[in-house]
Design a binder for these strands. Structure first.
Lengths: 238, 238
DNA sequence: GGTTGTTGTAATCGAATGATTACTTAAATC
DNA sequence: GATTTAAGTAATCATTCGATTACAACAACC
């Protein structure tokens, strides 16, 4: 009864120089999940929720579009999982910094800080977390993934998660790092400015526009080389 | 030859209680343009470029979708014009504040400032412009329109305009208001934080989450009532 | 060696969407 | 009052996209 149609694609050379094989290598679903989330983070970070397609994520992950959908159910849950992951990485990174500081493991980094920074724990942690934040630009998409969620407040599920995520970051900075509300606010504000500069790809104008140079140097300070390197890498990746 | 099909929709009651007439009132194209841009600002501000449809803009403007497209050519040019308008309104508002300050017309507002603010022109202008910035939340969509552009760096035309727009704001704050690069950076950072809080609709959680209350009060200060009022109005409008 | 579960794809479907075409109707002009 | 111009819509088209279905192939197990 069933129509027997064997695949037989190209009896001669099944794999003649094509970089992408017709069917992806078989790996456990749990691993594939992580690869898809990696790909989704990059795509969503760049194009936002509405601007991204499951097919683009699939292509970036090297698999077919139906597999992406079946693994996550809907595009929305895929976005939410990628968002949770970005959020978790950020919180995790901050907690690492705090733990390392409290364990006295950051003495050499402390000496590289601007001497104008006070010697109190909150002041020093604020600086150290700012550096850690800039480092996250390298891990493609974490910061922009959050940023994209921040402008998606109109999507009920995404908006709710974005609100809760933002508040949890504020709480960490205030309660675990011990910053005052005002210091925490200033810390977040600098972070949002950094996100914005990256969002508009201002690093692409570096050394082409004096105003851009000044703003970038003033905002990023010692973190500028890291960000510039990440931006150039992103340019090459297209 | 032509098939004669008269419109004749409902020979009895052509307009029986429907709030939207079948065909819009005829007004000059220049006026219609402004109405469409108003509608587009609201729609794009809420849903971003990719998440908005020309049909939604048309509905918000009370006309048909083809008219929107014919008036602006493409969705992209419509977005760019709405963006330019938002950008121009922001620059214009800042310049008004600066001009009024230099003309000595803001003495009563100056006395309401936090006494901790210095008495220099840059310090005072910084505060006054921050208040003006918060006022713009009322004019539905200006700030979020800009914010949406800031996360659309990957769209070539929009990204370019967003970069140029952001730099022109920075230049105004630095050159016309006279802020130092660091002060200008801090001013912009506070603005980006405000945008973010509005983007995630944090005001909707006011008096429902103590953390949200603290962050909102700490960030917005005297501007909080204005923002809360605007948010509630937006909630009602859906 | 057959059975069963897991990993993956091709084909396709229906809805949404930006854009186009052809038309209608009200107003201005001669 | 006929003609022309401006303002606006209905209908529709070609794509795109998220999701579904049905199937293929490899691996593990009995």
């Amino acid at each position: 009864m069933s129509s027997v149609v064997k695949k037989t694609e190209g009896a001669g050379a099944p794999e003649a120089g094509a970089s992408r094989q017709a069917t992806a290598e078989r790996i456990p679903a749990a691993q594939r999940r992580e690869l898809i989330l990696d790909a989704a983070s990059g795509v969503f970070a760049e194009r936002g929720y509405a601007g991204s397609t499951t097919d683009r994520v699939a292509k970036a992950a090297g698999i077919s579009q139906p597999y992406v959908v079946r693994m996550f159910g809907t595009k929305e849950t895929l976005f939410l999982e990628a968002l949770d992951r970005a959020h978790g990485k950020l919180l995790g990174r901050f907690r690492e910094v705090i733990a390392a500081y409290d364990a006295g493991e950051l003495t050499e980094q402390l000496q590289q800080l601007d001497p104008a920074v006070g010697s109190g724990r909150p002041e020093q942690l604020k600086q150290l977390m700012a550096i850690a934040y800039a480092d996250l630009v390298e891990d493609r998409g974490i910061l922009m993934m959050l940023m994209q969620a921040f402008v998606s407040g109109h999507e009920p599920a995404i908006g709710a998660r974005a609100r809760e995520g933002f508040l949890s970051i504020y709480r960490l900075v205030r309660d675990e790092a011990g910053l005052s509300p005002e210091a925490a606010r200033d810390f977040l504000a600098q972070g949002m400015l950094m996100n914005t500069l990256i969002g508009i790809r201002l690093p692409d104008l570096y050394e082409q526009d004096p105003t851009a140079d000044e703003l970038l140097e003033c905002t990023l300070r010692s973190k500028l080389p890291i960000v510039l390197k990440a931006s150039k890498a992103q340019l090459r990746a297209g």
